[in-house]
Design a protein around this nucleic acid. Sequence first.
DNA 1: TCGCAAGATTTGAACGTTCAACTCGGCACC
DNA 2: GGTGCCGAGTTGAACGTTCAAATCTTGCGA
Lengths: 342, 342
Amino acid sequence: MHPPTVEDVARAAGVSRQTVSNVLNAPERVRPETRLRVEAAIDQLGYRPNRVAQSLRASTSRMIGYRIEPMHPQSLASIHDRFLHALAEAGRAADHHLLLFTANDPEDEVANVQALHRAGAIDGVVLYGISTDDPRPPGLRQLRIPFAAFGRTGADSAHPWVDIDNAAGTAAAVEHLVTRGHRRIAFVGYPEGAAVGDRRAEGWRTALDKHGLLDGSRNLDLRGEDSLATGARLGEALLDHPTPPTAVVAATDTLAAGVLRVVQRRGARLAVVGFDDTPTAAALDLSSVRQPIEAVGHAMIRALLAYFPTRPGPSAPDQLGDEPTNQLLPPELIVRASSALH
Amino acid sequence: MHPPTVEDVARAAGVSRQTVSNVLNAPERVRPETRLRVEAAIDQLGYRPNRVAQSLRASTSRMIGYRIEPMHPQSLASIHDRFLHALAEAGRAADHHLLLFTANDPEDEVANVQALHRAGAIDGVVLYGISTDDPRPPGLRQLRIPFAAFGRTGADSAHPWVDIDNAAGTAAAVEHLVTRGHRRIAFVGYPEGAAVGDRRAEGWRTALDKHGLLDGSRNLDLRGEDSLATGARLGEALLDHPTPPTAVVAATDTLAAGVLRVVQRRGARLAVVGFDDTPTAAALDLSSVRQPIEAVGHAMIRALLAYFPTRPGPSAPDQLGDEPTNQLLPPELIVRASSALH
DNA sequence: TCGCAAGATTTGAACGTTCAACTCGGCACC
DNA sequence: GGTGCCGAGTTGAACGTTCAAATCTTGCGA
């Protein structure tokens, strides 16, 4: 009835508890003949080590906490789904699972993480949606709870993080537009002060500068909150500009979708490139900068595991430290009709 | 260094292990004076019961498995995010957490669930995206693993499920359109045979019939796979119809978005209502039928917990059985410009 | 033939919790 | 004054695993 235990397997194979354990964890200590006998018993009984007992014994849950947020109503579908799947997949490869929890705000998130950590339910946590002055990294550091962040805070980035090279993303968008003959290329982003937004703006600016196009576009840098309505408003402002741009790089697909809406409504000609390659971008045939989320997931799990108390695994333990825990991954531009028709 | 245990609290309060445990689990057995002393010690040490130890002792992980799928590339952002958050929130209320795992296909999912269940990592599982002949319900039933499904299979629905009243959703869309004066109302859905799709088609059909409009619209029932391209293709077919409809009810936002695209491109007048109220619907100003996902999450957790071996909690245990585990929840129509402008 | 070391396997103990059985006082009752 | 009971609190044991130490085996050289 109840699932078999080591003891059951041991009895079936005519050996002791520990020998079964050794077959699984240190096969070289067991005589080949015995090993085969035990393995046969394991297969026959369908034995699986009880993770809870393993966790208790090792005081390691092999669980990683993740706060699932209610979707921001104003923003388009984020890359969140893809990220979560990538994390789970990467976790599986490292024999860790994700534990979901909810929280009302960042402070509450830290409190809940602490509670889960004290309760031995999680070994560490993955942070999503890092903001410039995010209270979570310092908070968790003080609590000595292992974590890895998707994104960097403003000044202090002395914690393990993995990030997208946002500047490279908008720069690639500009390169693409310049190649297609555009000379006046605007930028639509959210207000200065947001780490991600600033980096995306910077990529646009430096890429323009590289082609000597910055002077003509400098006043085409519009900002506003990340919403469709704002995108539409800024899009109208661009079209009504005395010397309107022929292309625009948006900091998000949400803003891009807003711009695209007024462009289509007014039948204007304006190339648009978004950011994040959300499903909505595909739906609108909107060119967009795609983040390599799967790679991010794997890198984050690696970064997080590197922070756990070193396990004396059979693989050289110092090889882990070799790898840099912080990684900046390059995004990829997906070209669609919104920037490739005219 | 390590988090405090019952033993630490007991020592601090000058009592024994079990008394501390009793303060937390059966306060009425402890003299008030003692209880206060123990509670003070708990607060002072910041004690939290170790969930892993609790799980081992009770052979109950208080974890619910959930397979996170890679986003279907062709489909728009699903309601998945909202659902997952709702589940986590409902789980928290019941002192359960979600454990995420991945799988390649439904069979693999069942295998992974079995592995996790045997390993004591999960008590049960929540199924998402149920199809007509889904192999998971019978598979899990045979393995005697508790589960609850979001959606019903075709014939056999003798398992715990919670579902949206899909027919009521499309019917509400039709009512809305009829109220606005539409008489020829088309339907765009996916091919017959899909449980969800069939129910949405049925709601459209019966609502039309109720108003005596079915005869005029019977041949306006188009089907195809759930993709933007298909939506656009079917939309064109509707506009090119000898007696075109003035409104269309789509089985998904994806199909609706496709229809909307050709409508806008050709400047046609055709009211469109989608289904799921995805972020994309909001982005496109698309009317859509919104599923009460938060309620679904709570109902599913309830349904699942009802299947666990009955815990002799202080609350009357038979009150649990009172509630029907299977629930059909009514969706809500969100009216936007796509169906309310003309 | 004995001693001894290396190899193979077993037993003891512990991770932190809670159920079950037990002890210890105090109190009512006959 | 003995008996039984009740409330309050204690200790023992177990959940299933694995580290550490103990025991048993085997082979080999002296």
